[in-house]
Simulated assay, not measured.
Amino acid sequence: MLPSIILIGIFVYGFISWTGYVSLSEWRSLVPDYSFAGFENYLNLFKDFRFQADIRNTIFFTILFIGAVAIMGQLLAVLIDQNIKGESVFRNLFLFPMALSFVVTGVVWQWLLNPSTGVNLLLEKIGLSPKWYISTEVLFGIPIGKIEFGIPVAIIAIVIAAVWQMTGFSLAMYLAGLRGIPEELKEAARIDGASEWKLYRKVIFPQLRPITMSVIIIMAHISLKIFDLIYAMTGPGANYVTDVPALYMFEKTFRAQDYASGAAIAMILLISVAVFIIPYLLMNRRED
């Protein structure tokens, strides 16, 4: 095991430590500057309008994305579990988007939703072309500091594309969970007089809670680090309505050569992912 431990120590924990060190430095050009800056980079980020918009976008993207993926995956799994004809066809159809990369998904949905191409081009001919894909409007916005804290209309386009791609994963997990519930348990509930709705509500759905928790954790991990889909589909958007921390980190680090600020964003992303992952791992360990 020693070679693996050494490689993980260097390329995972070593680089995380190095990123944390750079985030506390004054390195803002191609020439390294390791002068200690303390938490100045972090404080400047939270005062930055773009980063504030990134946090807002990430919060609402995560909520909408996880909710839609969990609900649609569970619904489709229940429908497919009814022993319908051509089950394998439907299952493969829903799983197919997972075979694509987020870059391909972003390019395809950009074409579909763009007001000047795809579906919207047909709608424009009859005077119904929606502009929400490039809108800077914020729904239910509440002014907080420099930003409006609400749901950016344009982020909904990103949610649609991401849900389309990842619902198959949720479906596969829920379907495996449904197939793992003993048939005797269902029959016992039916004999006791439970209707089909009560059977699902009182017996089957409670059995799927561990699956739901796994789906939430995995989707949260994806949503917090989302980069390629947004980079290919919209970029940061006007007024940063579709910007996210990972995209800002990329531009800060590799375009502006502000390595210290880029490292600070990376550490914030790491902490935000750890907030979801660590409790989940501890809970699983206690259950085991």
Results as ranks from 00 to 15, higher is better:
residue 185 L to D: 06
residue 183 E to L: 15
residue 259 Y to Q: 06
residue 68 A to F: 06
residue 24 L to F: 11
residue 126 I to R: 10
residue 1 M to K: 07
residue 106 G to I: 06
residue 256 A to L: 10
residue 165 Q to I: 10
residue 1 M to D: 09
residue 85 K to W: 07
residue 177 G to Q: 08
residue 79 L to R: 11
residue 182 P to G: 09
residue 237 G to E: 07
residue 39 F to V: 15
residue 259 Y to F: 06
residue 248 Y to V: 03
residue 41 N to Q: 02
residue 221 H to D: 05
residue 97 P to I: 13
residue 77 A to F: 03
residue 169 F to D: 05
residue 27 W to T: 07
residue 278 I to P: 11
residue 57 N to E: 04
residue 157 A to W: 04
residue 279 P to K: 03
residue 268 I to G: 01
residue 95 L to P: 07
residue 219 M to P: 04
residue 68 A to N: 02
residue 16 I to V: 14
residue 256 A to C: 05
residue 86 G to A: 03
residue 19 T to P: 02
residue 246 A to K: 00
residue 72 M to I: 15
residue 121 L to P: 11
residue 85 K to N: 08
residue 277 I to Y: 09
residue 137 E to T: 14
residue 3 P to T: 13
residue 222 I to K: 00
residue 191 I to S: 08
residue 246 A to Y: 05
residue 115 P to S: 07
residue 129 S to H: 02
residue 82 Q to M: 08
residue 42 Y to H: 09
residue 155 I to G: 05
residue 40 E to I: 06
residue 263 A to W: 05
residue 133 Y to M: 10
residue 213 M to V: 15
residue 55 I to P: 00
residue 282 L to P: 13
residue 163 V to Q: 01
residue 228 D to S: 04
residue 142 I to T: 14
residue 57 N to K: 00
residue 106 G to R: 07
residue 188 A to E: 13
residue 143 P to C: 07
residue 201 R to W: 01
residue 20 G to Y: 02
residue 164 W to R: 10
residue 191 I to P: 04
residue 237 G to W: 00
residue 250 F to K: 03
residue 178 L to R: 01
residue 208 L to M: 13
residue 52 Q to V: 04
residue 14 G to F: 07
residue 220 A to F: 11
residue 1 M to W: 01
residue 38 G to M: 05
residue 204 I to Q: 06
residue 118 G to N: 06
residue 263 A to P: 04
residue 281 L to E: 05
residue 60 F to V: 01
residue 167 T to S: 00
residue 257 Q to I: 02
residue 125 K to L: 03
residue 104 V to T: 15
residue 122 L to I: 06
residue 106 G to T: 14
residue 230 I to C: 10
residue 96 F to P: 12
residue 247 L to K: 03
residue 159 V to Y: 03
residue 35 S to T: 15
residue 158 I to G: 05
residue 242 T to S: 10
residue 180 G to V: 02
residue 210 P to V: 11
residue 97 P to M: 04
residue 184 E to F: 11
residue 172 A to V: 03
residue 68 A to P: 04
residue 241 V to M: 08
residue 60 F to E: 04
residue 174 Y to D: 09
residue 253 T to P: 04
residue 194 A to S: 15
residue 206 P to W: 12
residue 198 K to G: 04
residue 183 E to Q: 15
residue 123 L to I: 09
residue 33 D to R: 06
residue 104 V to P: 11
residue 279 P to L: 02
residue 253 T to Y: 02
residue 2 L to N: 05
residue 284 N to W: 00
residue 69 V to Y: 00
residue 74 Q to G: 00
residue 258 D to Y: 03
residue 60 F to W: 01
residue 166 M to R: 02
residue 11 F to P: 12
residue 4 S to C: 13
residue 175 L to C: 09
